[in-house]
């Protein structure tokens, strides 16, 4: 097939067809220093990341997924970015954003952005697991989530996660989080935060049209 209408860049296609760093052996055999796990098959995607750490660097990363082409492509790319040139330091790795991965992939279709965030989430989870296992809990970054809806205790971080899952409008956000359904005072502020995140996450994508 000549790739007509293929919504993904050649880089994504390559990583999708020949994913790098898949965990091929059993978990027991691999003996990871940290394991991260996010998502669930019920939501349509799930990601597991295994890391080996030496002297503060991630020297090896393996992964498994129940996920779509974008999830596979972006995590495969993430696995290369992290282990390239002797491996990133844990501090560097924990800072990797979906935007950085998408940039290396040469873009993703807009409606696929939410599929690409599992990899870096699972990686942060794996790093935190490593910190926990090695007694360095002080290094686990505290999320500085700010409550934006007092009544239902919805934070800006919650909104960010919803946007990454694909939510783009206030009504859908409200349906999923119940934000602003009690006193409603926060609605304007929530809309602004929502728009900022949508702008941030969906601007960098290439959009090649729906099929």
């Amino acid at each position: 097939m000549d790739g007509v209408g293929w919504n993904y860049s050649d880089v994504v296609k390559e990583h999708f067809m020949r994913p790098k760093n898949i965990l091929q052996v059993s978990e027991e055999e691999y003996k990871a220093d940290g394991v991260g796990f996010v998502g669930s098959p019920a939501c349509g995607d799930m990601m597991k990341i295994f890391i080996k750490v030496k002297e503060g660097r991630i020297i090896d990363l393996k992964w498994q997924t129940f996920g779509c082409a974008s999830a596979i492509g972006s995590t495969s790319m993430l696995s290369e970015m992290v282990t390239r040139d002797g491996g990133m330091t844990l501090e560097e790795a924990i800072e990797i954003t979906p935007e950085a991965i998408i940039k290396e992939l040469g873009g993703l279709p807009a409606n696929k952005i939410h599929c690409s965030v599992l990899g870096d989430k699972a990686l942060r989870d794996a790093i935190n697991d490593y910190y926990k296992k090695t007694g360095q809990t002080d290094k686990i970054p505290k999320t500085e989530a700010k409550i934006v809806c007092e009544c239902l205790e919805v934070t800006d971080e919650d909104i960010r996660m919803e946007v990454l899952e694909g939510v783009k409008d206030f009504d859908t956000l409200q349906k999923r989080t119940k934000v602003g359904t009690s006193c409603g005072k926060c609605a304007d502020n929530v809309k602004k935060i929502l728009n900022d995140f949508v702008e941030q996450y969906y601007k960098c994508s290439i959009y090649t049209g729906e099929k």
Binding site: M1, P41, G44, D45, G67, C68, A69, I72
Partner: peptide, 22 residues
């Protein structure tokens, strides 16, 4: 996941469809 099956089959020249959200 269905979309990953669909797209791999597509690259092998087999056209199907899926009920996955993706």
């Amino acid at each position: 996941e269905g979309e990953s099956i669909l797209l791999r089959l597509d690259l092998f020249g087999i056209a199907v469809s899926t009920g996955s959200a993706c």
